[in-house]
Design a protein around this nucleic acid. Sequence first.
DNA 1: CAACGGATCAGCT
DNA 2: GCTGATCCGTTGG
Length: 198
Amino acid sequence: MPRDTVALSVALLGQVIVHLHEGERVSGRIVEVEAYPLNDPASHAFRGVRPRCRSMFLPHWHAYVYRIYGTYTCLNISSEVDGDGAAVLIRAIEPLEGISLMQWRRKTDVLRNIARGPGRLNIALDIGMTHDGIDLDSSDEVFLEAGPAPEQIAVGSRIGISSAADAPLRFYDAASPYVSGTKRLNALGVSYRPQACS
DNA sequence: CAACGGATCAGCT
DNA sequence: GCTGATCCGTTGG
């Protein structure tokens, strides 16, 4: 996986997040992310290490989970080297395994609404503050697996922030119906094919 | 559909 | 106090 935050964001699309719940796999394919790179005014890490955002400064591939608006939590993956604060926010997944359990947790049967949005996907996967700071490589509870990259990746501006709001740092699978913020999907009108590997 | 308010936690001014 | 990387139920056009 790339160490650069933006490169990692693109590489994460298509990867599968798995949470083992009493031996049952609950999982989904990442279809939407946002990058919070170094020196980003919108990043929690912008003003240095704080108790809440300390996990952003962990080495590459650790979980940063924080609470938002009192009720919900958001999952990020730390992206840079130890001591540098940056991460990728996971914004939406396509439900794959353990769907009935996710439907129960989310109190809806509508597949499209199960994990569209960062707060929603954490409820669906039962990821919360207890997972803050875990190493996703060594954890046998929450981890990632390789999955098919999107055929086409779209780029847009990030959602719900005020500073650096125009930065094109939101990436999503252009063909997926499981992405959030539909009204802003074409905010930049930019899309491109990911770099072809020969 | 769009707009609004409530729920409710933690950091910052 | 207030604001925020949110979601949901309700209201009104």
